[in-house]
Simulated assay, not measured.
Amino acid sequence: MARVTLKTVAERVGVSPMTVSNAFSRPDQLSAALREKILATAAELGYVGPDPAARTLARGSTGTVGILFHGTPRYALSDDFGALFLAVIAEELGRGGLALTLLPNLGTRDVLPVRDVAMDGAIIYSCSPADESVEWLRRRQLPLVLVDQPQDDHFPSVNVDDRAGARAAAMHLVELGHRRIALLAAGPEALANPTDWYVPRERLRGWHDVLDPAGITPALRYVEKSAGEAAYTAARELLAGPDRPTAVLAFSDAIAADVLRAADDLGLRVPRDVSVVGFDDSPVARRLVPALSTVRQDVVEKGTTAAAELVAAVRARRAGDDPPVRHHLLRTELVLRESTAPPAEVNHGTNGTFVG
């Protein structure tokens, strides 16, 4: 069977090969009727379009953007919130004519995805600014969008008001009467550098904005988010002690789920024996028993905004313009469900200091 090429389609329709190429790559250059005729003829002949590699060389762009996140792809996709966030970004990018490539924060001296993968731009999602992979993307001078990162005057950013959300969660527990409160924060490296790990730092600050003026010294445990059973182990240690907390503020819903599991394994009832508040309002928050009180961030708005900013930045770069730099701070909302209640009388104490 003879190989069907762009020239084959052009000869069948009676147009130039460039016109056929435009039908696939630059549809605005043709009338709708002519483009439809070319595409129909191509489909009839079994021609799928210009070779992507050749199209990349001709256009000077790949049609692909990357997303770099902390940890491995397995971890990034292991919870409902992360998976939904990536799905929203992929859908929005697709509407802008771009495909999404995952950039694992892995590699070797010879093969490093952030350095070697061809792409038109990238989203940097919840990484340390000091990360070597982040530095490689900056060196490549690609259009970048920062998500859950400190603001940078050179790149657009999308952040959630983490500090306000954490403040609302802590205030809820204090107003219920809790004094013995534990914090399960992301870490342990979270606060090693004041410019690192934006989200863990902001949520910890928000909790302390409320607890410090109330005279409450919480028990604090850092949990490495991608370290398997670390959250469950930390929660069980806190709840098994003789001086256990009456409430726990968790960095995320995924960590809060491990608190509920630890409580159940210890024979404690939520919220009668211990109240728990998460962060994110991921689908798991509604599936837990009892349903989880949490801080809601709009993952669809977050993903859509990040993708739209990257599409705009890539288009600007293609046109020879400087990408626009806009900073978005998305609101949070406290969502109350069944996992919080006033502390039982046996757990009330006059001393707000708690060193678990």
Rank of each mutant, 00 (worst) to 15 (best):
A118L: 11
Q297D: 02
L334A: 07
V145D: 01
T305F: 00
E345Q: 13
P129G: 06
D321E: 14
Y47E: 02
V4I: 15
L191H: 13
E44I: 09
A164R: 13
W197A: 08
V300L: 07
S78K: 10
D264T: 15
G66F: 01
Y125S: 10
L184G: 07
A319N: 14
G71E: 05
R163I: 08
T62G: 06
S128E: 07
R138H: 13
R179T: 09
A313R: 03
Q141M: 07
S128F: 04
H327G: 10
Q151S: 12
A230W: 11
D265F: 09
V88P: 01
P245D: 06
P52N: 11
D80S: 14
R201H: 09
G278I: 02
H348C: 10
Y232K: 12
G66V: 01
D281A: 12
R244A: 10
D264S: 15
R26K: 14
R269F: 00
V325M: 10
D153Y: 00
E224W: 10
D212N: 06
S31W: 03
T304W: 05
R179D: 02
N159D: 10
Y232M: 08
L288V: 09
L137T: 02
K37N: 11
R163T: 08
V259Q: 07
T101R: 10
H348M: 08
H172D: 03
L106C: 03
L249P: 03
L39I: 15
L329A: 13
A313W: 00
N351G: 12
S282L: 04
R331F: 00
D148W: 01
E202R: 15
L84Y: 07
E189M: 12
M18N: 07
T195M: 13
D79K: 07
T5D: 09
T350G: 15
D281L: 10
G241T: 06
S133Q: 08
T353N: 08
P129C: 06
L329R: 14
V355Q: 11
L184P: 10
L334C: 05
A40I: 01
V174T: 09
G320P: 11
S25Q: 10
I67D: 01
L336S: 13
D196K: 05
K7L: 12
L137E: 00
A99N: 15
P50M: 05
L238A: 02
L30W: 04
A58R: 15
S339K: 11
V346G: 01
T19K: 06
E36D: 15
D253N: 08
L93E: 05
R139L: 09
P27V: 04
Y47L: 08
R203P: 04
S126A: 15
F155W: 11
S157N: 06
H328T: 11
N351I: 00
R26W: 03
G94I: 09
Y125Q: 05
M18Y: 08
Y198C: 05
V158N: 04
F155Q: 03
P342C: 10
D131R: 09
S16G: 15
A54V: 11
I89T: 04
A2C: 00
